[in-house]
Design a protein around this nucleic acid. Structure first.
Lengths: 348, 348
DNA sequence: GTGAAAGCGCTAACAG
DNA sequence: CTGTTAGCGCTTTCAC
């Protein structure tokens, strides 16, 4: 079913049908009725390909995600979809599937570049109005998007010098969390760090340290142990820290998985949370709501990050803003029952 | 950058450039080299919109998902993407975002139909070659896809009479799990059911019952309690079952959340898993790997469901198969340490 | 081997 | 108010 056929059925020209469809010119009430009736009856749907081709505007945004099975990716896409729907844009998704690919050929980054180039060929070929690149880790991705002169926004990652970025705040969040702990009378801290080369881990630890510095608390370096982001690593690190004679009474883990490791370490060592030891995590993983006592943790603004990314992109597309912006959104502290509160915080 | 411009730069006709690009006719070696050089230099990317319009074939598949934030949706999309990539197809994603919408206007199903119709207008308008509809619950969805005469596959749901479907097996899986329990000497069962009107819950319970029937075990109806899919519900149900004088020694929960409820109920009642009570779940939620003893549970073949859906769709698109198929894929039993094994299963 | 030209379905001057 | 027509970028017959 095409415009031409509709026009023939209605006994008018294709232009008139187009006018009715788009309200782009004054059409007589009667003609309009007639055309609309036929459109409804036939279930006609305009060919967006032809329309976009003609108008040189697709109302299409390309979303490249490094891996859709990573938890945060779906949340971010959802945020993108929310505003896309509001503004009449559609998204074409390109899933690089890096997670499963990395397993088999870890060191061939160049292979992934080929995948990205292929994605880009498709997206640009589809005449997308702009591109959002969603990372699977919060890190710098450089020079991956070649030969584009369309607006680009990086989400959950960033790229120096090219395009805008939307991220969440690691350092400030941990700074605030640490101050909250300090305000509750906590004085002796252990830190369970992420992987050595992880930028977010580094920032989070910096946030903790800078809060502690402000109040003159020094963390013994032997109480900062890497847990490598995993449950097992967290448990091992916690045992190392808690086995000492004068172990710290508060352990700040850089994610929830490691915090759960602390839980089990504490159990094995006969320490009760939060009575003997306070613990905090990061991520607000689903699991934390199912474990008693609930972990005090950090929620990243994932859905909002998607929303803001798309907002930024659309502003750029529509010429409202040509400047690259680097947005860092605040996280939320989710209070559980895993930290000792001031009124009960005397030495027992 | 267009074909025409490339042609001008190379001093050949647009037809020749097209031939080089698609290998659709014999082109002189020298001409080919020249054209290819210019294509590479300019970073030319063919306009897929124009190509699809001309060929009346988009190599585009529409994926409508009821909600992308539901855990299984991302896995299924990943499976779809895997085979799409293999076969040179692209996907355009339409996220209905039902989860957040249902909160605000639960009873207006008609509103959602409007959303679906809008999605459909876009997808069909984009000239997709076929459509995959991914449900957020495993249930019947009827007459939601209007005015399409393209292949359709329903995934994680089904629709009587229209289109193919790909699902996982509820009944047979629970039948097998139950037999595994029986083989290990288990004789007294309690069941924690899902929601009353849930088809999967019903099928799962049927699977359990039919296995038990085969060996002549009857389940006391008072030992079948609804947990409504939630942790809290599961805990409540477990307390109800385990508080009896002669409580059953094996509890089959219809999902992992409820199974975790059983864990906490058991702890409160002073029962040890698996010594005093055996527990099984369903879903293989991430959380089960972080809780000791690991729950014996069921993994749904989510990624594969996506893969097979797309495979079915592409077969249909390419004329290899016009029959609607209804595929049910087997699940996998993930053995943990939450059930007592035969050799230790005597009464103590 | 290569090119000229028609046409996919649509929009947007322009004419009437 | 409505119709005619050029043309978006590409593929594909048909000629040469």
């Amino acid at each position: 079913m095409t415009l031409k056929e509709i026009a023939a059925m209605a006994g008018v020209s294709v232009a008139t049908v187009s006018y009715v469809l788009n309200g782009s010119a004054k059409v007589g009430e009667e003609t309009k009725k007639k055309v609309e009736k036929i459109i409804k009856e036939t279930g006609y749907r305009s060919n967006i390909l032809a329309k976009s081709l003609r108008q040189n505007k697709s109302f299409l945004v390309g979303v490249i995600v490094e891996d859709i099975t990573v938890w945060h990716t779906a949340q971010i896409i959802d945020g993108i979809n929310e505003i896309a729907e509001e503004q009449g844009y559609n998204t074409i998704l390109s899933n690089l599937r890096l997670l499963s690919k990395i397993e088999s050929r870890f060191d061939h980054i160049s292979d992934f570049q080929k995948d990205i180039d292929k994605s880009l060929d498709v997206l640009i070929g589809m005449q997308v109005d702009g591109i959002i690149y969603v990372g699977m880790h919060d890190r710098k991705v450089e020079h991956v998007l070649h030969h584009i002169n369309k607006p680009v926004v990086y989400c959950y990652c960033y790229s120096d010098g090219e395009g805008s970025s939307v991220r969440y705040s690691n350092e400030k969040t941990m700074y605030q969390l640490t101050h909250m702990l300090i305000d509750n009378g906590h004085k002796e801290f252990g830190i369970i760090d992420g992987l050595a080369n992880s930028e977010p881990a580094c920032l989070r630890v910096n946030g903790v340290k800078s809060a502690l510095n402000e109040v003159g608390i020094e963390v013994n370096e032997t109480n900062i142990v890497r847990g490598n982001w995993t449950y097992e690593g967290g448990k091992r690190a916690a045992i190392e820290i808690l086995s000492k004679e004068n172990y710290p009474t508060t352990i700040i883990a850089m994610n929830d998985d490691m915090a759960l490791g602390v839980y089990d370490a504490a159990k094995e060592l006969g320490l009760k949370i939060p009575r003997d030891i306070s613990v905090t995590g990061f991520d607000n993983a689903n699991i934390v709501h199912h474990i008693a006592p609930r972990i005090t943790t950090i929620e990243r603004p994932l859905q909002l990050m998607g929303y803001r990314s798309m907002e930024l992109l659309l502003d750029n597309i529509n010429g409202k803003n040509y400047e690259d912006a680097n947005i860092t959104l605040p996280c939320m502290i989710i209070e559980g029952e895993s930290i000792k509160k001031e009124d009960t915080n005397g030495k027992e």
